[in-house]
């Protein structure tokens, strides 16, 4: 008998096949889904991406940010700025925006990494507020009341409306897949193992000191870049931007935290399940307005108190299923 260390499991291989099929079906959506459905799907993809990234930050790197709206709004505003001032085509702007997001995140991280734990969280919020206030000072982008994307820029994506919507849809889907692959890649890397070590035992990992700081830094900056790109796409779809919408703590952080917490923080599957649950709740309860938001708050509190590992954490501990090949398993084989 011999032992072999592997990361895949029967459930993860089955999931890979199902996910592959699902992606093919989703790519084909413009041919089978209505316009409203496609808008909803894009929104789900974008939220899914935000949730995966926030989970990477908080669930793995222990960087609990309540200020990711800083980068969502930054991405949105840079997209509008590039388009309005220089006529840069939105899709071409996306990679530029991601890089700018990374560059902006470097000094931000250097400052707020001086704050620990929960104070770090509020620090990220202050940064987002600063971004919002700065954005509302840019009069060329409409100041506090915001601005719209010029029609010519919108048309530069594609002249027909249907094609344009399909392109935006595919980009959102591609971004979501990119984010998921990136997270899996980060977590499987040596740095990713260090991250899990930090999360599981800060003291034991403490001897790694500098390396931990670097790892957290890289994760923060990488997340900021991707979040900026997502933000750009969100506001490309909305066509209109205002400081309050771009830097909304509710829309881009509270909802995202809700998704991750309810799905299961610190697992890759959690944010995906959480996003789906969130959208089911939203589609059925959103008419309740503030009551709906109160329900979200209550559910998040209840989950944190009674099932802190969320829905997926419960399933995982109960049935030992894992959809992404992250955990090392020792496999015994008869020779």
């Amino acid at each position: 008998m011999s032992a072999r260390v592997t990361r895949s499991s029967r459930s993860s291989r089955a999931f890979a096949i199902i996910a592959g099929c699902a992606v093919v079906i989703l790519i084909a959506a413009p041919w089978w889904a209505g316009r409203a459905d496609m808008r909803l799907f894009s929104e789900i993809f974008l939220y899914l991406s935000l949730a995966c990234l926030w989970n990477l930050l908080a669930g793995y790197a222990g960087l609990v940010s309540v200020g990711q709206q800083a980068f969502v709004g930054f991405g949105g505003y840079v997209l509008f700025g590039l388009a309005i001032f220089w006529g840069v085509s939105p899709l071409f702007a996306l990679p530029i925006i991601a890089i700018l997001g990374v560059l902006v995140a470097v000094p931000v991280a250097a400052l707020i990494f001086r704050l620990r734990g929960a104070y770090f969280a509020i620090g990220t919020w202050v940064v987002a507020e600063i971004f919002r206030l700065l954005a509302s000072q840019i009069s060329a982008l409409g100041g506090g009341s915001g601005t719209s994307l010029p029609v010519s820029v919108v048309k530069s994506i594609a002249s027909s409306r249907a094609t344009r919507e399909s392109v935006v849809y595919w980009t959102a889907l591609a971004l979501a897949i990119l984010v998921i692959i990136t997270t899996v890649f980060v977590l499987r890397s040596r740095k990713g193992l260090a991250l899990t070590a930090i999360r599981d035992n800060e003291l034991a990992a403490g001897s790694l000191g500098v390396e931990i700081w670097q790892t957290k830094f890289i994760v923060y900056v990488l997340t900021a870049g991707l979040t900026s790109a997502i933000g750009a796409l969100i506001f490309l779809q909305k066509i209109r931007i205002t400081p309050d919408a771009a830097f909304s703590v509710n829309d881009w952080t509270a909802f995202v935290i809700f998704m991750v917490v309810i799905g299961g923080i610190g697992t890759l599957e959690g944010p995906i399940i959480g996003t789906l649950i969130f959208f089911v709740l939203r589609e059925t309860l959103a008419d309740l307005g503030t009551i709906y938001l109160m329900i979200l708050g209550l559910v998040a509190i209840a989950i944190m108190l009674f099932a802190p590992k969320g829905v997926w954490g419960y399933v995982k501990s109960r049935y030992g299923i894992e959809l992404f090949p992250i955990t090392h398993r020792v496999k015994f084989e008869e020779e």
Partner: peptide, 10 residues
């Protein structure tokens, strides 16, 4: 630190 943060956020 997550539970107190997220509960007070909720």
């Amino acid at each position: 630190i997550l539970p107190p943060l997220l509960v007070t956020f909720g």
